[in-house]
């Protein structure tokens, strides 16, 4: 084959390679390298042989890594584990909310009875009721924290999906490529908002400032 024709063939193969949406077939890569080497006139230099050898080793490494990843069944993470974890966490938010409202119903009934009680006793009951109302704030805080975890899991899901796409269909159990991108309506999937960079949610105690610190900022 004439040199020009070989160059043209290699160029076409490289264009094909670029179209592969980030996934590279190591065998395809090796065939291109072989074509490049075949096109070299005269004997291969020691350097050329070394390059060829290294690329071949790299191709074998990629093949082995892909096989190992396929063994791990990474698509199980996206199809089973992450959605199940997300559902469980969402259910926790729902059940704690329901339980909290049941507590409210009971406490509000007790509070209504204070009008019929001795004033001194009523005052003590009211104080206890107030403490219960304050404590029920846990549902809001834990709900927000769990929502943050759900968002993190969905982020992992997106990254695993990108990994699966990069390594091709043979690492998927069903062999079918999945569409990239989110499929949720959680805050991370919502349209960008002007204050999005300030939405940090509840902070761990070591990162949060106290009400006293806030009051100091208000002077």
């Amino acid at each position: 084959m004439a040199v020009a024709a070989v160059k043209e063939k290699i160029a076409a193969q490289l264009i094909e390679l670029q179209k592969n949406d980030g996934s590279i077939d190591p065998e395809h890569l090796v065939s291109i390298v072989e074509a490049v080497i075949d096109s070299i006139e005269g004997d291969l230099t020691a350097v050329g042989l070394k390059v060829y050898s290294d690329i071949e080793a790299l191709a074998r490494y990629i093949n082995a890594a892909r096989a190992e990843i396929a063994e791990l069944r990474p698509d199980d993470i996206n199809s089973d584990y992450l959605p199940a974890a997300t559902d469980e966490l969402t259910a926790i938010v729902g059940s704690t909310e329901q339980a909290t409202h049941t507590i409210f119903e009971a406490v509000e009934s007790i509070e209504a009875l204070t009008e019929k009680m001795d004033p001194e006793v009523a005052e003590q009951i009211s104080a206890a009721v107030t403490s219960i109302y304050e404590a029920c704030g846990f549902q809001d805080i834990t709900g927000q924290r769990i929502t943050k975890v759900v968002t993190a899991l969905q982020h992992v899901e997106t990254k695993v999906d990108a990994l699966l796409n990069a390594f091709g269909d043979d690492v998927r159990r069903d062999g079918a490529p999945k569409p990239a991108g989110k499929k949720t309506t959680t805050p991370s999937g919502a349209p960008a908002r002007p204050d999005e960079d300030l939405l940090n949610g509840p902070q761990l105690p070591e990162n949060a400032i106290s009400q006293d610190d806030i009051d100091a900022l208000f002077g």
Binding site: E134, G137, Q144, L198, G201, Q203, N207, I209, I214, L217
Partner: peptide, 27 residues
């Protein structure tokens, strides 16, 4: 709000909030 970073409080103050209470709060 549960947004308890200094930057949040400052941003809210600059936007004209009258006061700021961090969750969890008490009566």
């Amino acid at each position: 709000t549960a947004e308890s970073k200094t930057e949040n409080v400052i941003a809210a103050k600059q936007a004209g909030v009258s006061n700021y209470i961090v969750k969890p709060f008490n009566a």
